[in-house]
Design a protein around this nucleic acid. Structure first.
Length: 220
DNA sequence: CTACCGATTGACT
DNA sequence: GTCAATCGGTAGA
C-alpha cells in the first residue's frame, strides 16, 4: 500500500534521519515505456559540513548545484560513465543528500531487464558483436532479479534515471518520486550500519544504512 | 584547449 | 581482496 509521495517536510530534516527513514520506502519511476517500482534497501548520507566525501565539500559548482537547492529534489551525478541518484535533504543552502544505493525490484521487472540489457547497444549505437571488446559490457542473457538494481548506477540504469532528472522535484508524484510505504518502514533493529562504499575520504564515518537481511543490498 | 580525478562496475587473483 | 575501463566534471594553461 502507498500513502503517496513523501512530502517536502520529510526531506527537510537532518540528513542521517532522512537516510534511515528512506529505507523501506518505494522508489517510483514512470516513463512512456511503463512504470518501475523498487523498495529502498540501502542508502548513504552525505553531510553538509566536515564531510570531504560530499561533492559539495568544496563549494557550489555547476554539477552539485541541486544539492544547494531546496530539499525533496533529486541530485543526479555522473561517475565513470554511469549515473547515481540522491535525494536532497535539509533546508535550501544546506548541501546534504542521501545516495540511493540499492532497491528491491517490486514492479516493472521486465522493463528493468530491458533497460539493463540495452547497454549492450553501446552509447554510439554500435552493434553488440562489434562492441564486445570495446568497453561496453553487454549483457546477453536474463539478468537475475537480485542484480537488477543492486548498486547506485545499476539502479539508475534499471529506472532510466540520468542527467535529465537532476534537480527534479521528488514531491510532485510525477515521472520520479518516492512513495511513503506506510507500514513498510522496518523497525530500527533491522537496520545495519557501515562505512560508506567507494569513498576515498572520510571512509571511517558510519553513514551507510541498509536492511540487514535483504539480499538486494550491494554488499553486506 | 589539456590533464586529472572519481559516491562504479565487472573481471580477475 | 585487486585492477582497469571509460567519460563527465573540474581546474588550470
Amino acid at each position: 500500500m502507498s500513502a503517496g509521495p513523501l512530502p517536502r517536510r520529510f526531506y527537510d530534516r537532518n540528513v542521517v534521519t532522512v537516510a534511515r527513514d528512506l529505507l523501506g520506502q518505494r522508489l517510483v519511476r514512470v516513463t512512456p515505456d511503463g512504470r518501475t517500482v523498487g523498495r529502498i534497501v540501502e542508502v548513504e548520507a552525505y553531510l553538509p559540513r566536515d564531510d570531504p566525501a560530499n561533492h559539495a565539500y568544496g563549494g557550489k559548482t555547476r554539477r552539485n548545484a541541486s544539492m544547494f537547492g531546496p530539499p525533496g529534489h533529486a541530485y543526479v551525478y555522473a561517475i565513470h560513465s554511469r549515473w547515481c541518484l540522491n535525494a536532497v535533504t535539509e533546508p535550501a543552502g544546506v548541501a546534504s543528500a542521501v545516495l540511493i544505493r540499492a532497491v528491491e525490484p517490486l514492479a516493472g521487472v521486465e522493463l528493468m531487464r530491458e533497460r539493463r540489457s540495452a547497454r549492450a547497444a553501446c552509447h554510439d549505437g554500435t552493434v553488440p558483436e562489434r562492441s564486445a571488446q570495446g568497453g561496453c559490457h553487454g549483457r546477453a542473457g536474463r539478468e537475475s532479479l537480485r542484480d537488477l538494481a543492486r548498486g547506485p548506477a545499476r539502479l539508475c540504469e534499471a529506472f532510466a534515471i540520468d542527467r535529465a532528472l537532476d534537480g527534479w522535484d521528488l514531491t510532485r508524484g510525477e515521472a520520479l518520486w518516492i512513495d511513503d510505504a506506510g507500514d513498510g518502514a522496518p523497525p530500527p533493529r533491522e537496520i545495519a550500519v557501515s562505512r560508506r562504499i567507494g569513498v576515498t575520504s572520510a571512509h571511517d564515518l558510519p553513514l551507510r544504512f541498509y536492511l540487514a537481511d535483504s539480499p538486494f543490498v550491494s554488499r553486506p
